[in-house]
Amino acid sequence: MKLIQTVEAEGAVLCHDITQIVRGVTKGAIFRKGHVVAKEDIPVLLSIGKDRLYVWEREEGMLHENDAAEILCAMCKGRHMEQSQAKEGKIELRAACDGLLKVDDKGLKAINGFGQMMIATRHGNFPVKKGDKLAGTRIIPLIIEAERMEAAKKAAEQATGGLPILDLKPFVHKKVGIITTGNEVYYGRIQDTFTPVIEEKMKEFDTELMDHAIWNDDDTKITASILDMIEKGADVVVCTGGMSVDPDDKTPLAIRNTGAQIVSYGAPVLPGAMFLLAYYQAKERDNPRTVAIMGLPGCVMYAKRTIFDLALPRVMADDKITSEELAALGQGGLCLDCPVCTFPNCGFGKGV
Rank of each mutant, 00 (worst) to 15 (best):
G188M: 03
Y186A: 10
I119R: 01
P170Y: 04
N183K: 11
M118G: 09
L134A: 10
I190E: 04
L108P: 05
E184I: 04
I179Y: 12
K175C: 08
V103H: 10
Q116I: 00
A95G: 14
G162N: 00
I119A: 05
A135G: 03
H173K: 15
I165P: 02
I178Y: 11
I143N: 02
R122Y: 13
T160H: 06
P164M: 02
A96P: 05
I179N: 11
K175Q: 15
I91E: 12
K154R: 12
L142I: 09
R122A: 12
V103F: 11
L142V: 09
A152G: 13
F114R: 09
T181D: 07
D98L: 05
Q158T: 08
G161F: 06
T193E: 05
I140N: 05
P141K: 13
K153N: 15
P127L: 03
N112F: 08
G177W: 12
Q158D: 09
A86Y: 07
L168R: 09
V176N: 05
F171L: 12
G136D: 07
Y187C: 10
G124H: 12
K174R: 14
C97S: 14
A155V: 14
V185C: 06
I143D: 03
R148K: 15
I190T: 02
L166R: 02
G113Y: 07
H123I: 04
K133S: 11
K129M: 13
I190V: 14
G188N: 01
G162M: 00
F126G: 00
A120S: 13
R148N: 07
I140D: 01
E92F: 14
H123W: 12
Q158I: 09
A135L: 04
L108E: 01
E88F: 14
L134F: 15
A110C: 06
L108F: 01
F114L: 10
E145F: 09
K133P: 03
T181G: 07
R189E: 15
N112D: 03
S84E: 13
F114S: 04
V103N: 04
N183C: 07
K87M: 06
T193G: 00
R189T: 10
E157W: 02
K109P: 05
I119M: 09
A120T: 15
E184T: 02
K169V: 06
G124R: 01
T137Q: 02
Q191N: 03
I165C: 00
A86D: 07
N125T: 07
K90C: 13
M149A: 13
S84C: 08
N183G: 03
T180V: 15
K90E: 02
T137L: 14
A86G: 01
I143Q: 03
G136I: 01
A120K: 12
F126C: 01
A146L: 09
K154P: 00
A95F: 14
G136Y: 01
Q116P: 03
A155H: 13
K175T: 12
I139D: 09
A159D: 11
T160S: 01
Y186G: 01
K106C: 06
L134K: 08
M117E: 10
Q116M: 12
Y187A: 02
L134C: 13
K130C: 09
A96L: 13
D167S: 07
K87F: 14
K106F: 08
V185G: 00
A155K: 14
L163V: 02
K109M: 05
A110M: 05
L168V: 08
H123E: 08
A95N: 07
I179T: 09
C97K: 12
